[in-house]
Amino acid sequence: MGVYVPSVELIARVQAGETAAIGRLISRAESGLAEARGALARIHKLAGRAHVVGVTGVPGSGKSTLVSGLAQRLRTGGDKVGVIAIDPSSPYSGGSILGDRIRMSDLSADPGVYIRSMATHGATGGMARAALEAADILDAAGFGVIILETVGVGQDEVEIVQASHTTVVVSAPGLGDEVQAIKAGLLEIADIHVVSKCDRSDANRTLTDLKQMLTLGTGGHEPSDRAAPVIGTSAVSGEGIDELLEAIARHRDLTTDTDAGLARRQSIAEFRLRKTAENLLYDRFNAAAASASAKLAGQLMRRESDPYTLAEELLSTTLEREGDHERDVHSKSA
């Protein structure tokens, strides 16, 4: 690309589906560049057509492999598929090794599949900060289905449900008994359950446990057609992928132009709004608190005051500074 191309000039090229422009705009979104805000606002207006599928599960459960199989099968239906694959950043160096692409090498020759790896960069909840902006960019570029793959999560990193239209939770065989299946958290958020590695002998047990969990308390009746289906898949044999695609399509139908779908979209929007505001607040607080916190920490260390009092003081000084900053900006622009 050579010299610096302004972000707004990338919009038309993103809409035309130009890979380098898509890649660059995602990078600008990731860096939180103020210059890119206007362009991203325009992109947000252009987006809104794609179906966003979230894929989550514990580390090593087979998420990337499943995403690869899913994307390949979706391509035969003609949809362009975007994949945003998130891996963790190091808590020590801030660096990362993003290895999800290794499992997706079958897709790497297909121009209709766009894969982007992202590091969490300190974000919690299994997501990366710019993941939804990246999804908007791919959406505006004409990708009909966007798959968001979270980091390997623990039991309560469930932000993905607030970011995707359909959430798939992947469980692997051999990781726990039937009590794991009724615990709160990750398993509750599934629109669709997948049990991966079904070529393994202990997979049936996991399938049964999950299905029983879903019928618990329903008086032994079969789960209703709205209950999350449980699907066994195997990357070795290709089993279950078609069934999973059908389940995603069915869930998409159930949430298009229905009250349930509208409620989901409202909650996704609300979450995104609050998360964005939270991030802004967090950045401003960190920038303003840097100098004051060292002094206050000294007082805390010497036990001259208590944590709550000092935290209140830190908050009020940083918020004051934030107010000063706002006034500066206004007086300069006036």
Partner: peptide, 15 residues
């Protein structure tokens, strides 16, 4: 890859 990660870089490895 490991050295670059420890230097704070994001490293994508293709296999």
């Amino acid at each position: 890859a490991r050295a670059l990660r420890d230097a704070g870089m994001d490293v994508i490895y293709t296999g």
